[in-house]
Simulated scan of single mutants.
Amino acid sequence: MYSVSFRVNDKVHRKSYKTESGAMRAIRKWFQQHPESMHTLVMLYGPDQEPISYTQACDLPEVTSKVSDFYRSQAWLDLRYKALNQYGNSCACCGRGLENGATLHVDHIKPRSRYPELELKLDNLQVLCDQCNIGKSNKSEKQWR
């Protein structure tokens, strides 16, 4: 469990977060919403670590995106190519394809957010158009192929 205390002048607000990334998102958001605050101190408390203090947004570490790193990896690009070759060039759900102006996505049937161990398994992939994939989101595990 992580905790963040936001102090401006003499007012202190404290909030708990399940993850460090959740706490860091809250800190970034706070600095965005309070750019003019000059007497600010934000403290991040976490298990097995010394408290870390921040007084301005530029003190925060840079954000790296694990999602975009995955989708740029050679392993994903190779597997995506195999999925498109094996499962075709039209949406498994609605049938739209490139000839209908659809943008095709290679979808994880069981979402990466809940099944990270399946992210590079060909049998967990299907081809969906952008509309069907965005509509499906990570709420459904329906296999359309």
Score class of each variant (00 low, 15 high):
residue 136 K to P: 00
residue 126 Q to I: 00
residue 50 E to L: 10
residue 75 A to N: 05
residue 70 F to V: 01
residue 119 E to G: 13
residue 101 G to F: 00
residue 15 K to S: 13
residue 85 N to Y: 09
residue 79 L to D: 02
residue 136 K to W: 02
residue 142 K to L: 11
residue 42 V to N: 01
residue 143 Q to D: 13
residue 83 A to M: 08
residue 85 N to G: 11
residue 86 Q to N: 13
residue 7 R to Y: 05
residue 70 F to Q: 03
residue 117 E to M: 13
residue 61 P to N: 07
residue 26 A to V: 00
residue 39 H to Q: 13
residue 51 P to N: 08
residue 128 L to W: 00
residue 69 D to V: 05
residue 110 K to V: 04
residue 131 Q to V: 14
residue 59 D to V: 07
residue 142 K to Q: 13
residue 95 G to D: 02
residue 79 L to G: 03
residue 105 H to V: 06
residue 67 V to A: 12
residue 17 Y to P: 01
residue 127 V to F: 04
residue 72 R to D: 10
residue 48 D to W: 06
residue 96 R to G: 06
residue 140 S to C: 08
residue 127 V to K: 08
residue 105 H to F: 08
residue 54 Y to P: 01
residue 13 H to E: 15
residue 48 D to I: 05
residue 51 P to K: 05
residue 96 R to M: 08
residue 44 L to T: 00
residue 49 Q to C: 07
residue 108 H to P: 03
residue 144 W to F: 14
residue 26 A to N: 02
residue 22 G to N: 07
residue 30 W to F: 12
residue 113 S to I: 02
residue 72 R to V: 02
residue 24 M to F: 10
residue 35 P to N: 06
residue 114 R to V: 08
residue 49 Q to L: 08
residue 92 A to W: 07
residue 125 L to S: 00
residue 29 K to Y: 14
residue 85 N to W: 08
residue 39 H to E: 12
residue 116 P to L: 14
residue 135 G to E: 14
residue 4 V to R: 01
residue 77 L to W: 00
residue 115 Y to D: 07
residue 56 Q to P: 05
residue 143 Q to I: 06
residue 63 V to K: 13
residue 71 Y to V: 04
residue 94 C to H: 04
residue 10 D to T: 13
residue 97 G to N: 02
residue 22 G to F: 00
residue 18 K to E: 13
residue 21 S to G: 14
residue 131 Q to L: 15
residue 13 H to C: 11
residue 113 S to H: 07
residue 66 K to F: 10
residue 29 K to I: 09
residue 109 I to Y: 02
residue 30 W to L: 01
residue 62 E to I: 08
residue 39 H to D: 13
residue 59 D to K: 10
residue 141 E to H: 12
residue 90 S to K: 15
residue 58 C to Y: 10
residue 99 E to W: 05
residue 11 K to C: 09
residue 13 H to T: 13
residue 76 W to R: 00
residue 51 P to E: 07
residue 77 L to D: 02
residue 113 S to F: 04
residue 70 F to P: 00
residue 78 D to E: 12
residue 103 T to M: 12
residue 43 M to C: 09
residue 33 Q to C: 08
residue 7 R to S: 11
residue 26 A to D: 01
residue 42 V to M: 06
residue 49 Q to W: 01
residue 110 K to M: 09
residue 17 Y to D: 00
residue 61 P to K: 09
residue 137 S to M: 05
residue 111 P to E: 01
residue 13 H to S: 13
residue 9 N to C: 12
residue 79 L to H: 01
residue 140 S to V: 05
residue 136 K to N: 03
residue 22 G to P: 00
residue 40 T to N: 06
residue 139 K to C: 07
residue 145 R to A: 04
residue 55 T to F: 09
residue 84 L to Y: 09
residue 112 R to K: 15
residue 11 K to L: 11
residue 47 P to F: 07
residue 35 P to E: 08
residue 135 G to N: 15
residue 38 M to N: 10
residue 50 E to R: 10
residue 59 D to M: 05
residue 89 N to H: 14
residue 9 N to D: 12
residue 112 R to W: 12
residue 96 R to Q: 10
residue 73 S to N: 05
residue 106 V to H: 01
residue 130 D to T: 06
residue 58 C to T: 15
residue 135 G to W: 11
residue 33 Q to D: 14
residue 41 L to Q: 11
residue 88 G to S: 04
residue 77 L to V: 03
residue 142 K to T: 12
residue 96 R to Y: 09
residue 111 P to K: 04
residue 126 Q to C: 03
